[in-house]
């Protein structure tokens, strides 16, 4: 309760929360909210590149589709990509971090050195290379993002596990002869949850951005999917005349990424004020 009260006082965190919640609602209700839900895949050559008007507030694109509808429909794609990628990365990264932090010897060394190698190269570049290798498709883009994002979780969980592993209650459990699995998953993991949640929240925003970049470069979503990065890529040749074609998907990316970052930062402060300075 105290945590909630503290969070409620954090203005930027609350702004982030409102943005993220709005995005989630929009994503869930996308087909109902979009004025022209069928514009995801239908084209209307007669209404190409119309400026924003009452009929289509965000204008129409090169195939005459309603940009507002496609931005709304794209929310669902963006959020589900982010969710799947972050969940996948956690599924790989968290257990590795736990194991590396809990045990001693060569195994943690190997895990952490591999992690370091991944972290040494910027994630986006690595993901680009991997996506290129796998061939352009949305599934491969997500796979590439997942396979390059897990080390962030491993790093955090490793540090937390090392810290919690030597705490008195873990020692007490070992005194009661508790097994490693029980100690790691039932005790250390919940205690390490706050920084993991913070990282996952910020990671959602980060992944939306990366997915958009992959889409923009033609390594992610394929036409005619309503995807923000892809939309910006398609709009390039109609700039600067059809400014609305690129601007509104871009704003959507900015807003959602911004929202996740504010929320993550807000959570970070609630969870541990000490973390703020360390990054």
């Amino acid at each position: 309760m105290l945590v909630l009260r503290k969070f409620a006082r954090d203005t930027s965190g609350m702004v982030g929360l409102v943005i993220v919640l709005t995005a989630v609602v929009v994503a869930v209700l996308a087909p109902r909210l979009a004025p022209h839900p069928l514009d995801a895949y239908e084209s209307h050559p007669l209404r190409r590149l119309q400026a924003p008007s009452d009929a289509s507030p965000f204008g129409t694109d090169n195939l005459g589709r309603d940009v507002l509808s496609r931005v709304i429909l794209g929310t669902r794609a963006a959020l589900s990509i982010a969710l799947l990628v972050v969940a996948g990365a956690m599924l790989i990264g968290v257990p590795l971090g736990l194991v590396a932090g809990y045990y001693r010897g060569w195994m943690p060394e190997v895990i952490m050195r591999v992690t370091d190698v991944f972290l040494a190269v910027p994630q986006l570049i690595l993901a680009l290379a991997l996506a290129q290798l796998l061939g352009p498709s949305l599934r491969n883009a997500m796979l590439a993002l997942t396979l390059t994002y897990w080390p962030f979780f491993t790093r955090i969980v490793f540090a937390e596990t090392r810290r919690i592993r030597v705490s008195v209650f873990v020692e007490a459990l070992e005194g009661l002869n508790a097994g490693a699995g029980r100690v790691m998953f039932a005790h250390i993991l919940p205690n390490a949850a706050p920084p993991i949640i913070v990282r996952a929240t910020i990671g959602m925003g980060f992944t939306i951005l990366s997915a958009a970049v992959l889409g923009f470069l033609g390594m992610g979503a394929t036409p005619p999917d309503p995807e923000w990065g892809l939309a910006i890529a398609e709009s390039r040749q109609y700039l600067p005349e059809a400014w609305w074609f690129a601007t509104f998907p871009g704003l959507a990316i900015f807003l959602v990424v911004f929202g996740f970052n504010l929320l993550g930062d807000g959570l970070r402060d609630v969870v541990d004020p000490r973390l703020r300075r360390s990054r």
């Binding site: 008195v168 209650f169 007490a172 459990l173 005194g175 002869n177 005790h187 919940p190």
Partner: peptide, 22 residues
């Protein structure tokens, strides 16, 4: 620990010896 199951230990710092999340 298994062989010395008959021996148990109570920590000095009782507050720290319990998982705060449980």
């Amino acid at each position: 620990r298994r062989a010395r199951h008959d021996v148990q230990y109570v920590h000095q710092d009782a507050a720290a010896a319990l998982d705060p999340w449980w």
